[in-house]
Design a protein around this nucleic acid. Structure first.
Lengths: 238, 238
DNA sequence: CGTTATTCTCGTACGACGTACGAGAATAAC
DNA sequence: GTTATTCTCGTACGTCGTACGAGAATAACG
C-alpha cells in the first residue's frame, strides 16, 4: 500500500516497530499477541467501520483490559498502521508476471481495488497514513517487479506506484460513497430532490443537462477498469 | 469538489442545510453568522490542521460559547461540510474556457490542486465527505462546461469529474506527506535507515535497486502535471 | 404598553475517547 | 530464594461531541 497524506503522524521509529527482536525470555509471558490484537481490530473495522475501532472495544474483543493493548502497540495510530499492513498480507506477492508491464501494473491496481472493497475502511485509513510493514513492502516489491521492464529510474517507479495506489484509493472511496448514498434510506432521495431543485434555479444549466440526460447507470467495475486502463496506458516509460 | 468515501455521514438533509430560508424575524438576533463561524474553522484548520478544529476552539475563535455553534450547524460533521464549501468558493467559476476540453479539464485539475495546497486539510476532509454546497456546485458547473464539447452522457461527465477530483486529492495528499516526511526532524532519516535495512535483507531486490538508483529528486509540480496530462489525454470521449 | 411566542446564548453535565500511572502478578536468571 | 524483568489492567485525567435547559433578547399581538 504505502501511501500517505495526513497531519497526525505516529512518531514511532519504523525500525523499532517492524524489526524489533522482541522478548528476551525474561518477564511475564504475554497473554496475547500483536497478530491477534491486530486481527481483532481488522474484524471490528470490517464489521462496523473504522470509527468503531477504539482501544476499549478492540481489547474487549480479545478479552484483554484496554491498557494491555499498549504492550503490543505504543499507541492507536500504530495499531492502525498494523491493521493496514495486516490486510496487505492478503495481497499476492508472487503472482505470475506476464512481462508486459502495462498488463502487470493494471493487475496490481485491480488487486488493490479488490482488497479495498473487502476492507472498506482501507481507503480512509490509507489516506492519512504511510505504512511500511513487511506485507506492505512485499507488495511494493511485487509492484516494482511489474515495473522492471520499464527502465524508469527508482524515484519514478515509486512515484508511479504511489500514484496508482492513490488513484485506486480515491476511486474505491468514491465507489463506496456512491453505494452508501444509493442504499441508506431517504438520504439518496433527499439528495436527488435537492439537486433537482438546484438544477431548476436556472443558474446551473450543466447540472440540469446532466440530470436530464443521465445515461445508463454506470457499472463500478467497468468504470474502474476503464479509468485504470487509460491511466496506465497513458503512462510513458521514458 | 464533490467527493465522498467514508462511513460516518452527517444525516442532514441537504435541502434544509443549503436552501433554508432562515430567520422569520422573530426571536433573539443572532450574535454570529454561519459565514463567520465557518471562516474561523477554516482559519484554524489552515493554521493547525484538521484535528485542531474542535467545537470549543472554533467557538473561542469567534468569541462564542461552544454550544452556540449549534445554532448555526447541527453538528460538527456539518461544520466540516461548510468548511469544504467555504474554501471551494475560492475556485473560479467563470474562467475562460478555451473550448478544447482536454486543456480545460487539465486547468480544472490544476485549480483543484492549488486549492488543496492552500488548504492542506482539504484532501483529508474530502476523502470522507460529499459536499453539495453552492460553491461546490458552482465549480461542478464550471467543470461540466469544460466537458461540454465531449458529448459524454450525464453520468459519464460526473464520473470523469469525480475521478479527476479523487485523483487530485490523492496526489496532493501524497505530495503533502512526502513534504512532511522530508521535513520533520529525524523522522525521514529513521525511515530511510529502516528502508536501507530492509533492502539489505536480500529479499527485496526491487527496493534495493530503487534505493541504489534513485534518479533526480522529483519536482512535485512537474510530477503532478505529468500524471494529470496523461490521465486526461488518456480519456476517451465516446 | 404588557404579554406571549420565538429564537438565540451558553453553563453544566454526560458518556466516550486516548492514554499516563502505578500497583500487582507472573516469569526467568542468578 | 531473591531479584530483575515484563507483562496485565483498574483507576483516573483531560478532551472530545453534544443533550439539556435556564435565561436573555426580540418581534408580534392584545
Amino acid at each position: 500500500m504505502t501511501r500517505g497524506g495526513g497531519a497526525g503522524a505516529s512518531g514511532v521509529d519504523p525500525q523499532q516497530l517492524w524489526l524489533n527482536p522482541g522478548r528476551t525470555g525474561r518477564g511475564r509471558k504475554p497473554a496475547f499477541s500483536r497478530e491477534e490484537i491486530t486481527a481483532a481490530a481488522v474484524a471490528l473495522a470490517d464489521a462496523e467501520g473504522l470509527e468503531a475501532v477504539t482501544m476499549r472495544r478492540v481489547a474487549a474483543r480479545v478479552g484483554a483490559g484496554a491498557m494491555s493493548l499498549y504492550s503490543y502497540a505504543p499507541d492507536k495510530e500504530t495499531l492502525l498502521e498494523l491493521m493496514v499492513d495486516h490486510v496487505s498480507g492478503e495481497l499476492p506477492t508472487d503472482g505470475r508476471l506476464t512481462g508486459d508491464w502495462r498488463t502487470d501494473l493494471k493487475s496490481v491496481g485491480r488487486l488493490q481495488r479488490d482488497l479495498m472493497l473487502r476492507h472498506r475502511w482501507l481507503p480512509a485509513a490509507l489516506s492519512a497514513r504511510r505504512s511500511l510493514g513487511p506485507n506492505t513492502l512485499a507488495f511494493l516489491e511485487y509492484a516494482l517487479a511489474a515495473l522492471r521492464p520499464t527502465r524508469l529510474d527508482g524515484a519514478a517507479k515509486l512515484e508511479v506506484f504511489s500514484m496508482l495506489t492513490g488513484f485506486v484509493a480515491g476511486h474505491v472511496g468514491y465507489e463506496i460513497s456512491q453505494a452508501a448514498a444509493a442504499g441508506s434510506s431517504g438520504r439518496a432521495a433527499a439528495e436527488a430532490r435537492y439537486l433537482a431543485a438546484v438544477a431548476a434555479d436556472g443558474r446551473h444549466p450543466g447540472l440540469a443537462e446532466v440530470l436530464a440526460a443521465p445515461g445508463r447507470p454506470p457499472d463500478p467495475e467497468a468504470t474502474f477498469s476503464r479509468f485504470l486502463d487509460r491511466l496506465v496506458d497513458g503512462l510513458d516509460t521514458g
